[in-house]
Amino acid sequence: MPDSNIEGGAYNYAYLDEQTKRMIRRAILKAVAVPGYQVPFGGREMPLPYGWGTGGIQVTAAIIGRDDILKVIDQGADDTTNAVSIRRFFAKVADVATTTSTEEATIIQTRHRVPETPLREGQIIVFQVPIPEPLRMLEPRETETRTLHALSEYGVMQVSLYESIARFGRIAKTYNYPVMVNDRYIMSPSPIPKFDNPKLDRSPALQLYGAGREKRIYAVPPYTPVKSLDFDDHPFEVESWTECCALCGSRESFLDEMIVDDAGKRMFICSDTDWCERRR
C-alpha cells in the first residue's frame, strides 16, 4: 500500500500498520457475528488522547479506503472541535474525501448522536464509546460483568431501572440508555441521547462501536432488533420539546438549547447541523 507522508515522517495508509488493521478487522468480524458482544482487541496508542475518540478512529482506520466518503460529527455537528480534528486527521492520513452530508457519506464517525437523516444499506456508522460495559456502574469488576453477560444474568440491570422508578416515578436514564441486542446481549449504545435509540432498531446500516481506552469493539449488523430496556407498565419514551427549531422549524429532531443573552433568553436549534441546513 502506498504511504502517505505526514509532516516529514512516513506513515502507512490510514495511519495504522497493516497488521494492526487486520487485528482490528478480525475483532470487527467477530463482533458482527455476535451482535452486542464486547470483543477485546489490542488497542494502540493513537495521536489523539484516550477519551477523545481513539476507539472510533481505530475502527474507521481499519475499514476506510480511498473510495470512501467520510463524515465526522460530534454532538451532531460537523464543525465542533473534536469532529474537525478527526476529519482533518483522516483527510491527511487516508487521502479520502470528506463530507458534511449524511446522505453522501459511506462512513459516518460519530460522538454522542445518530444523524436525523435515516441511514441506508451500505452505510457504516462508527460510534465513539467511552465506557463499553453497560453494567459498569452497577458492578465495577470486569471479571464479574463478563460472567453476567456470559450467563445472561441481567437482573442487576432491571433492578437499577426499578430503583429509578421507585425514586423518580420514571426511568430517569436519559443518555447511554441500555438496550437488548438480538434478544441476547445488553449493550451500551454509547452516550447518545435516548432520543436516538429507536434509530438503532433494525437499522439498514452497519453499526460499529469502538472503545479505545477500554479496548473493546462491538457491533450491530443491519436489520438487527435493538430494544431499549423498560417495564411493561413504564414503557420506553423519548425526549420531546414544546419548542421547534428556531432556524428550520423542525419538530422531529433533537434540539440543542442555546442561551443567547445575559438575561437567560433561550433558543432551540437542531443538534444535527446537516439536517438543519438541508431544511432551510
Binding site: 488522547p49 481513539t54 465542533t80 420531546s240
Partner: peptide, 19 residues
C-alpha cells in the same frame, strides 16, 4: 485522556438531563 475528555462538548448529553 479520559479525565481530560470531560473538556469535550457534552451538551447533547447534558440537554437530555436538562429535559
Amino acid at each position: 485522556g479520559f479525565v481530560q475528555h470531560l473538556k469535550l462538548p457534552h451538551y447533547v448529553d447534558f440537554q437530555s438531563e436538562l429535559v
